[in-house]
Design a protein around this nucleic acid. Structure first.
Ligand SMILES: NC(=O)c1ccc[n+]([C@@H]2O[C@H](COP(=O)([O-])OP(=O)(O)OC[C@H]3O[C@@H](n4cnc5c(N)ncnc54)[C@H](O)[C@@H]3O)[C@@H](O)[C@H]2O)c1
Ligand SMILES: NC(=O)c1ccc[n+]([C@@H]2O[C@H](COP(=O)([O-])OP(=O)(O)OC[C@H]3O[C@@H](n4cnc5c(N)ncnc54)[C@H](O)[C@@H]3O)[C@@H](O)[C@H]2O)c1
Lengths: 218, 218
DNA sequence: CTCACAGCGTTATTTTTTTCACAAGAAAAC
DNA sequence: GTTTTCTTGTGAAAAAAATAACGCTGTGAG
């Protein structure tokens, strides 16, 4: 089971989503769910749901469907490091603070435990329960707090440099909000959150959907 | 050429990235580039770069490579609506303001022209040059400013409702920051920016990276 | 001049991801 | 007791995406 190797990124992403939906259902008192119900909620097909659960080795009952709390436990065994994962955030600007504000306490096994900024005015403060440090303390704090994942919210011009420092300090995964592709060793996994790209994508697809149509009412 | 239909979302996303990289190169005075150089910068393969440009019908020269400014123009002809695309943002909270602050003036053809919030304290103000309106004005303003794309930065509990109002008002594309999947008509294109999911993905892969091999983004 | 290169465009191949389709099993209906 | 009707799990098929392969074409070294 924890002999879990080679699950695709796509599947991991969906499992994360499924777990969130299942947790909400569990709160509402629901105990079982069918693949097509969950599929409908998540916006995917039922076959995909069944396949994803097959990948992690969870079986439901053809008569009752999936047992929600068991399923959550099973997904969590795949997604979560049992020790928990400590996360750092670098760049305590507008976006960095918004993320800290949003994220804290959301996932019990995934906690932001340190923030870093180059600006001396922003260090040695506690924001959302997270202490901010000077960049010069990065290596030490990352090691001390056993930080393995980091969120980058510095300006694009500093992102590569910051990423390298983080990797050098031992970080193995990054969520990058700066609009630049990071060049890092293959064993570091990076997820880019590029709002300009996303906007251009939806602008493109929203534009071609009414290729022949004209404008509606002014 | 403008008979451009059926370009995959993956390709559109890369084109957006390529354009950004090319624009930066152009500023530095570079005039030509080879596929493998751009590939290297973008973190993809050279074959992919050539393929993407083939899809949009741009040809380079085997001797000089691609002509950067021509290429930018060609990509822009695909990505940009010549009239420009007007964007709204709904939810003027921490994240909404961070995005306005970041995005304004970044893409000439893609402009945030209105903000909306339910909180009366946040309406009728001008933030980053963008006027914020009451939600009740949504339909009217969307029509008046010909807004076709919107960014959703309201709490998860309101996201579905807000999305429906936007679609009802005529919006065709959404970038959704709320951590809930939106259920909307197929012709509306939605891009989700889910930081919890991204963090769980990199946490997962950073955890198994020592054990086995796994590639993240295909 | 000739030849070896280097890089493009495109076709072919491989790999990855999604969807289809159906056996099997159990409740419910009759 | 039999049939009907739901599921799940999963092999097979299809679709989508990425990669490799190769012919073509100027270039520049010798
Ligand atoms: N993907 C998105 O949705 C999105 C949205 C907004 C902004 N962004 C990006 O996020 C980044 C931050 O945006 P913001 O609006 O918070 O900017 P900001 O200017 O408010 O904050 C940047 C912070 O980084 C700090 N910083 C600068 N250089 C640093 C370094 N080398 N090391 C450590 N800290 C450093 C600054 O002191 C500042 O506190 C930018 O790259 C921006 O492009 C992305
Ligand atoms: N993807 C990410 O990286 C990320 C990061 C942080 C937050 N988020 C999400 O973004 C959303 C906003 O986060 P935030 O930190 O800015 O929260 P916030 O509370 O600071 O802001 C929310 C804003 O939405 C307004 N609002 C509430 N209900 C509304 C409605 N029905 N119509 C219009 N406006 C309404 C509120 O008045 C407030 O101004 C949340 O859903 C959060 O989950 C996503």
């Amino acid at each position: 089971m924890d002999r879990s190797n080679s699950i695709s990124g796509k599947t991991i992403g969906r499992l994360s989503l499924f777990r969130r939906l299942l947790t909400a259902l569990s709160f509402e008192g629901k105990t079982h769910i069918y693949s097509h119900e969950l599929a409908n909620m998540a916006g995917v097909t039922a076959a995909q749901v069944r396949r994803d659960f097959m990948v992690i080795g969870y079986s439901g009952s053809p008569v009752k469907g999936y047992h929600i709390t068991e399923l959550i436990r099973c997904v969590s065994r795949v997604l979560d490091d049992p020790e928990g994962t400590n996360v750092a955030i670098v760049g305590v600007g507008h976006l960095g603070r918004a993320i800290m504000n949003y994220f804290q306490g959301r996932r019990p096994k995934l906690q932001i435990v340190a923030a870093f900024d180059r600006d001396e005015h922003k260090v040695n403060r506690v924001i959302q329960g997270v202490r901010s440090h000077s960049l010069s303390a990065l290596k030490e704090v990352v090691a001390q707090r056993r930080i393995t994942v980091a969120i980058i919210t510095v300006p694009a011009s500093s992102a590569q440099e910051v990423a390298e420092q983080l990797v050098e300090a031992g970080v193995r995964g990054l969520v990058n909000f700066a609009p630049v592709p990071l060049r890092l060793p293959d064993e570091v996994s990076v997820e880019d959150m590029d709002i300009t790209m996303s906007l251009e994508k939806v602008a493109y697809f929203s534009g071609i959907s009414d290729a022949g149509k004209e404008r509606m009412e002014p």
